[in-house]
Design a binder for these strands. Structure first.
Ligand SMILES: [Mn+2]
Ligand SMILES: [Mn+2]
Ligand SMILES: [Mn+2]
Ligand SMILES: [Mn+2]
Lengths: 219, 219
DNA sequence: ATATTATTTTAGACAAGTCTAAAATTTATT
DNA sequence: AATAAATTTTAGACTTGTCTAAAATAATAT
């Protein structure tokens, strides 16, 4: 078994590789897990000894297939727990991440499969992120950042990039939620901010910074 | 916050004090948390510094009110999670303890109160153990060991002392479950084993060792 | 191509929790 | 009351994960 700490490193490496498509740097990991570069180097040696990563000094790191499987399992657990918290216990989508950070480390295959079944095998979590299946298979839906759409495009919101409480609460306040239909009414040249219509009703202005943190798919 | 380890010591001390009514010994704690007496002494110093226990060298230990509150909170979480696992996820009563040992350390007041509400504020866990309320108040039901009843007594099974998988599975196999009515048909003088009738139906023989691990209340 | 800067690794230390072996204290026995 | 036995504490060491400061390597700029 891997320790909580090891699991958090694996998850961090998985997400960074996913994002960049490249081997990830010691510094990037350090920032992600909120620790020093020296500590990361120590841990990389350990994960390498355990054959969880591919690592050569100064050359960056990727996950081995064993490491990727472990990472996907943690991500599966995290997202299923988030789903459980929102759908069953009526938590808000901005409240669940920190709790799921703890629950994702609970070790019981039977438990996670029962939760999955109880939730009716959900495909995405409350933030629109895909949930890996029991074999670690992950359906990566081809969404795009809202900031990449053009004037008069109509799309459906499928996810968010930023998962912070403040961002999610801002979306709530603006009436922006997963599944809603968005029409791009206007794009301001100066700062690339957007005027959008939500569900054929309200018009709302959002900054480019916000648009870059919303995922959507063409309708 | 207290670490997982500290929480497990507090829980162990709580249960040992509960059982004996006296200050508990270093050795007793060592056995309960499955570690060496030396390690226990180290931890007792730490818990004492944190004002969680009353401790004087060589004199044994009891919980401070702060420590007792912490212990009861962990026990509340453990028992509510066991209830959730059995009632909602259809686990058997012999499968849940180890998972609850992990879940009891998840830190979120909101989570545990939502679970409590979702379960409709249960009073006892799947093993008949009482669940402390949100204020740490615990209703100690006055049950007795089945081994203390007399011939022709009729009683209702309310709990178990031993929580091991093998014991609980033995009870399942024998048709003995919480809430069932038991009539003591005979007590064998030689070894104090019992012939009992379950729910006015089947007759079953159980050893005194088994009877000493079943709790019941007079009908 | 060399010098400067940034990144990464090593060295050495620390806190938490654990261990074994030895010393101190308490309890039980004669 | 003195001795033996059991319990508890101390001493010293080890592991995991962390840190800072210094050294090594790589990347960038002149
Ligand atoms: Mn999350
Ligand atoms: Mn999520
Ligand atoms: Mn239990
Ligand atoms: Mn229980």
């Amino acid at each position: 078994m891997n320790s909580f700490t090891e699991e958090n490193y694996l998850k961090a490496i998985y997400k960074l590789v996913q994002l960049s498509g490249l081997a990830v740097s010691t510094n990037a990991i350090a920032e992600k897990v909120n620790t020093s570069a020296a500590s990361v180097t120590d841990m990389l040696k350990k994960l390498s000894d355990k054959k969880l990563i591919h690592y050569k000094k100064y050359q960056g790191v990727t996950l081995s297939s064993k490491g990727e499987k472990a990472a996907l399992k943690i991500i599966r657990k995290h997202r299923l727990w988030e789903m459980f918290l929102v759908d069953i216990l009526d938590f808000k989508w901005d409240e669940v991440h920190d709790i799921a950070e703890q629950l994702e480390h609970v070790n019981s295959d039977k438990l996670i499969e029962k939760i999955d079944k109880f939730l009716n095998h959900p495909i995405v979590d409350p933030h629109g992120d895909p949930i890996p299946d029991a074999n670690g298979k992950l359906n990566n839906p081809k969404s795009h950042l809202l900031s990449f759409f053009n004037k008069n495009d109509v799309c459906i919101i499928t996810g968010v990039v930023d998962h912070s409480t403040s961002f999610l609460q801002y979306l709530d306040k603006s009436g922006i939620a997963l599944g809603h239909e968005i029409k791009i009414k206007d794009i301001i040249k100066f700062d690339r901010s957007l005027k959008i219509t939500i569900n054929k009703g309200n018009n709302v202005f959002i900054s480019n910074d916000v648009a870059k943190n919303i995922l959507a798919i063409n309708k």
